[in-house]
Write a protein that binds this DNA or RNA. Structure first.
Lengths: 191, 191
DNA sequence: CCGACACTAGACAGACCTGTCTGGTACTGT
DNA sequence: ACAGTACCAGACAGGTCTGTCTAGTGTCGG
């Protein structure tokens, strides 16, 4: 067993970091393999032995973003005291992502817009969609919503709408606007 | 003056029709020029003399969709009796588009996700965004909203969210769900 | 009849794409 | 010392992309 753990940055990590920047900011279809390996400082053969194909790298890139999002969400939501605040807190986390440097909209919405029908990339974006939905359902249930699935579905609409407004209209306060609407929906559903 | 009017289908029209199908269903970046001219039954030189470049064709394709959308919206909204029904009727038109064969989400959301930053394509998608926003502002004002801009902004969130749910989750009833939420927002704003 | 015009068919250039392959380097555990 | 492994650098093949150019066809106004 090699002590890979002690390696500062493996080729795999550097590739994912480069893909995370380039694919996200310019689109998975626009950015070619050559630019990714150049930024990562990695040989092309290493990319293909590690991820198998460009699609494999794209999927790993999306899974990485999903994992980061999940971790940030989990950490941030734990700081809220009440179930209601936790539910609405999702929009705070969303709003923070809007003002991050290099923000370019929801990576999963963008990637799925570029993917061909039937592409394995869609499996990863579907996983993300399922996670978002279940996150809202769970939080809505804990907040005492009469119909958690119904409320969650409404909140997902606002969540996605804010993401579109942030990217297309450069409206960084869209999450706050969505949160305001969400609050009235939550209060109506938990009355 | 040639009597172009009597021509059944000019090269320009056939090109736009082909682009409308291919670009919309598979993405402006994925579909190459060759496939467009093949479907249109048009020579490549004609495309370039008519639209100047692929970007020019893409812009014309988007402007065409914008115009069609505008016309359908105008026609359909005229059938409603009250300002409130007209405002909410936007979601009916949206929902009808979801069940159209070949539906693949909002063409402008998709095209802007594929466009490079600074691309002239974004000018056309921005025009569409402005139209949607002003449509809602105008209808909200006529419906007697206390703050038409605020209500419009909220309705745009629902409008975009429904489009994402329809494409990514294949949820064709997302427009109806958005309309339900919209109704409560409208009633609260016009109380 | 003729010149202008719009169009078709297809070759072509130059760039870029993914993916493979060769050869060389450096480190690792035994 | 040596085999194995992980990696780098870059050439290469085969395909696709946009955009240009040549050459030929048909049509229509005058």
């Amino acid at each position: 067993m090699a002590m890979n753990v002690t390696e500062r940055t493996s080729a795999r990590e550097r590739l994912l970091a480069a893909a995370n920047q380039l694919f996200y900011e310019e689109g998975v279809h626009t950015v070619g393999i050559d630019r990714v390996i150049e930024r990562a400082g990695v040989a092309k053969a290493t990319l293909y032995s590690t991820f198998g194909s460009k699609d494999g790298l794209i999927r790993a890139y999306l899974r990485g973003r999903h994992e980061v999002r999940r971790a940030i969400m989990s950490t941030r939501l734990a700081t809220y005291d009440t179930p209601r605040d936790r539910l609405l807190g999702v929009f705070d986390v969303l709003g923070d992502s809007f003002v991050q440097p290099g923000f370019h909209g929801c990576a999963f919405v963008n990637a799925s817009a570029e993917a061909n029908p039937g592409s394995p990339i869609l499996e990863v974006t579907d996983e993300y969609r399922g996670w978002v939905r279940e996150l809202f359902v769970e939080l809505a249930r804990e907040a005492g919503a009469a119909e958690p699935e119904l409320l969650a579905r409404q909140l997902v609409l606002l969540y996605d709408g804010a993401g579109i407004a942030a990217r297309m209209d450069k409206d960084t306060s869209a999450a706050a606007a969505a949160k305001t609407v969400a609050a009235t929906l939550v209060d109506a559903a938990t009355a």
